[in-house]
Nucleic acid binder design. Sequence first.
DNA 1: ATACGAAATATTGTATACAAAATTCAATAT
DNA 2: ATATTGAATTTTGTATACAATATTTCGTAT
Lengths: 224, 224
Amino acid sequence: MDLQNDTVGTLRVDKATLHDQVVARIRDLIVEGALLPGSRIDESALIEQLGVSRTPFREALRTLAAEGLVEIRPTRGSIVRKLTPDEVFSMLEVLAQLEQLAAELACKRASDAQIAQMVAIHEQMLEFYAKRERMPYFKLNQEFHRGIVSLSANPVLIEIHGNLHARLKRIRFVGNRGPDFWADAVSEHEEMARALQTRDGTLLGEIAARHLLNTWTRVRDAVT
Amino acid sequence: MDLQNDTVGTLRVDKATLHDQVVARIRDLIVEGALLPGSRIDESALIEQLGVSRTPFREALRTLAAEGLVEIRPTRGSIVRKLTPDEVFSMLEVLAQLEQLAAELACKRASDAQIAQMVAIHEQMLEFYAKRERMPYFKLNQEFHRGIVSLSANPVLIEIHGNLHARLKRIRFVGNRGPDFWADAVSEHEEMARALQTRDGTLLGEIAARHLLNTWTRVRDAVT
DNA sequence: ATACGAAATATTGTATACAAAATTCAATAT
DNA sequence: ATATTGAATTTTGTATACAATATTTCGTAT
């Protein structure tokens, strides 16, 4: 079947359970935008496509519902969860607060080498910005933010941040495509890189939170 | 079967799906301490007790796993998730940050009547403290904290806070049983009530965060 | 007695079957 | 033409069956 384990040489890579694989696949379909918010999740079509039976598929939907990506309407099928503008704003409010904490912790706990690596990412972003290469910039941007959260060394923070990020991913993507906002974002990043180098957690946290809430104004019309 | 819907007069109360009922029941068993961390979740025993088949039961386990209350070990059964001291500390770190945000938002968004009600709860807590009635105090304490989060009017914040709170509930309970820490907690609450009345969000947030991190020292030995 | 290993047993993961909805669609009445 | 009703069909929720793994039990050898 489609999802079954690969083999590398004679060594089994296995690891992920069928449940985890199905969850990952459906989550990707949602996060990457193949399944649009509000659209019906066609069980028979997807179990066909994934080559699994209803049991693991429905269990996967339960975990995605708990993650907030799917809405299961009793006896009326499941849909990709649709976010109201209010909910998006609520999520950004929380996300900003979490990134602020992450920033403070990262400044306390990261090694010099780790900080150097973040700065390197930032500098690469500047190059892509100079060349106006949106997509590679966008990828690195995500890596930068995820990096700061990782450096917090707080697994709960990492998990919750990851979840909110996944829920918002499509919207953030739309937001970052704006035209002249890009320059603002870059200068905010410049500030962040400097704060990180001086390990000024309070400052970094403040900028990070402001940076994120600014995306709201950048994104608002895409969602309102 | 055990879980089936009640009837009030001739009116069906129904509402909750079987899945939600099973999730709620198992969650209660965990949160209230009937199922201890690390202990095996005996599928056949519990489906017997709940009167449901394996399908809805296992789906319930999936959502509880996503909530972080249950750990499903592939092909080796499920256990009540066990928290390491590090994880507990991580959760408190995040929870403190979330309560800080909640405090700031509550001061901005709550109505005068809502604030008055919170103050009333606080005053009742003082009475129970004077009479040294731990249990009623403890109940109101929870209501007070949940109240502040509710007043933030941020559904995402409310959801995440509720989840972390559920995961920590047993431990917080243990912590609050300490002897002379109680006085400290009460005086912190006194400060919080005052800050709320003056709508000083920054101050309230700071106290709330400090208050929560103090529970760590109160709780540390119960968990280390 | 203790350690080992194979058969017996129990548990887990997935597929399927069946019952109870909801939805679709077509025929009829307005 | 539009609305309405009621079968036909599809979809959903739950139970059960079956196959694959783990775990236990018990007999044997050291």
